[in-house]
Computed example of a mutant assay.
Amino acid sequence: MNDHSAPRATSAGPLGRRTFLAATGAAAAGAAWAVTAGGRAHAAPAQASSFAVPLDTVPHTRTWMAWPDSSAIWGRQLAGVQANIALIAKTIAKYEPVTVCANSAGVAKAQTACGPAVTVIGSIPVDDCWMRDTGPAFRTDGAGGLDTVGLNFNGWGNKQTHAKDALVAQRIAASLGVPFTSAGLVGEGGAVETDGAGTLMATRSSLINTNRNPKLKQAQIEAALCAAFGADQVIWFNGVTGRDITDDHVDATSRFLAAGAGLVQMPTATDNDAWSKDARQQYQILSAAKDADGDPIAVTQIQSPDYGRIRSSDPNFVAAYANYYVCNGAVISAQFGDSRADAAAKSSLQRLFPGRVVEQLNIDSLGAGGGGIHCVTQQQPRP
C-alpha cells in the first residue's frame, strides 16, 4: 500500500491514517482539480510590507523543534517517537543550531536524549512534536528584517488537544523579540509550500475545510495565504479529505525546489489507493501549472518505496521521502528499509541539492505516527 499524507496520533490515543477514519466516521470529499492563479490582487498587504516566507534553501539561523511527552497522545509509541525526535535534532545540529521546546518537566530528559549540541528550553510548553504545524512561519524582507506569521493552529480541525500548541508560534516570536501577526485563516505549516518567489502549493482538503475555515470561500483563503506568505498565487490540489488527521498535507507529496522547479513523490505502478491517485494528480497539475511569473514549472519525480519491502508492517505507516528537511549544508531525509528505493531517493536528493550532504535516518516511529522530518522541524531563516 502507499501513503503520501501525514496523519497524527490523536488525543484519544494513537490512531493512524486508516484507523483515524474509522474512529471519526469522516468521509472523503471530492472537488474538481484546478490551478487557481490571479492571486496578485489579493497579496497587497504582504507586498506592501515586502515581507515573505523564503524558500527553505536559504541560510538558516536555527531550526526549531518540539519534544513530545504525552502518553495520552502517543501511548506505547512515545519512547520511539522521542528517540526519533532526538536523532533528528542531533543530526541537524551538526549543520546548524537547534532549539527544542519542551515542557518544563521534560527538559532534563530531552536534553540528555538530544545531547549537548542541542539547546532545550522549558519556557515554551507544547502538546506534541509537530513544529511545522504549530510554529511560526518566518518572513524576511531582503533588507535585514525578520518577522513571523502564525496560522492559528486549531489541532487539525479540533481533532487533538492543542491548548499549548496554539500558543507556540507567538511565544517563539516573543522569545526572539520579533513581530508576530496572525494570518487571516486557520491552517498548518505542513499544508502550504512556497517557492519564495510568489507561488504557493496547497490542498483544498486541508485548508478549504469547515473544520478550519467554515466561513471562508476559496478566494478568501487564497487571499489570506498570499498575504501571510508574501505570495501572488496558489496552485490548488484537491487532496484527500477525512482520511487522516491533517486532511492531506501537501509537504508529504509535493515540494518546491526553487522558483520554477518542484518535486512530487510518485507511487509504485501497482498502487491505486486514494493517496496514490492524489499523488498522480498533484504531479499532473503541477506539471501543467505556471508560477507567479508566468513561467512553467519543471517537476521532478521521486519514487515511493514499495510498501511490501519496508521495515514497517503498520498499514497506516507514512513513507514520504518528500518530507525531507533542508538545513545549512545538508538535506535530512528518511529511509524505510526498501534498500533499492532508499538508495534511489538518496541519489535523487543528492542530484537535486548539489553541495549539500544527504543524511538518511530511520524515523519509523514517526512514520507509524503519521509524519516525518519536515513535519517536526521549522526553519528560522537569516534576515
Rank of each mutant, 00 (worst) to 15 (best):
A258G: 09
D306N: 05
L286N: 13
Y325N: 10
Y283G: 08
A279F: 10
D291L: 02
L225W: 06
S276P: 10
D271L: 03
K290Y: 06
K290C: 06
S304E: 08
I235Y: 00
D251C: 05
N272T: 14
A227L: 00
G260R: 03
A228Y: 02
A334V: 00
I297P: 12
G239E: 14
N328L: 02
V250T: 13
V250F: 10
A330F: 00
S304G: 08
Q284W: 02
I235R: 01
S304N: 08
S276C: 12
K277P: 00
V240T: 15
C327H: 04
A322N: 06
A334K: 00
A330D: 01
F256D: 11
I310Q: 09
T300C: 10
I297H: 13
F237L: 07
P296Y: 01
V318G: 00
A259F: 03
L225V: 12
A224V: 04
F317M: 10
Y324N: 01
L286F: 14
I221Y: 07
G239R: 07
T268K: 14
R311F: 06
Y307P: 04
A319P: 05
N328A: 04
S287T: 03
A261C: 10
F229R: 01
N238Y: 04
G242F: 09
I221R: 02
W275S: 14
D232R: 07
S254C: 15
I235F: 03
G308H: 09
D251T: 03
A320K: 05
D247E: 12
T253H: 01
D306P: 00
H249Y: 00
P267V: 06
Y321G: 04
P296S: 10
R309Q: 15
G242M: 13
G230N: 05
N238H: 11
N272K: 14
T253N: 11
F317A: 03
F317Q: 06
Q265C: 07
T268P: 02
A223W: 03
D248F: 12
S312A: 06
G239C: 10
Q284L: 13
A292K: 12
W236F: 01
I310T: 07
E222N: 11
I332W: 00
A231T: 07
S313P: 05
V318I: 02
V318D: 04
V326T: 09
A269K: 10
L286M: 14
F336S: 13
Q233K: 08
L263C: 09
G260M: 05
S339Q: 14
V299D: 10
S304I: 01
A288C: 07
F336C: 11
A252D: 09
A259L: 04
I221V: 15
Q218L: 15
P305M: 11
I235H: 03
D293L: 12
A259R: 08
Y321N: 08
D244Q: 04
H249V: 00
A288Y: 07
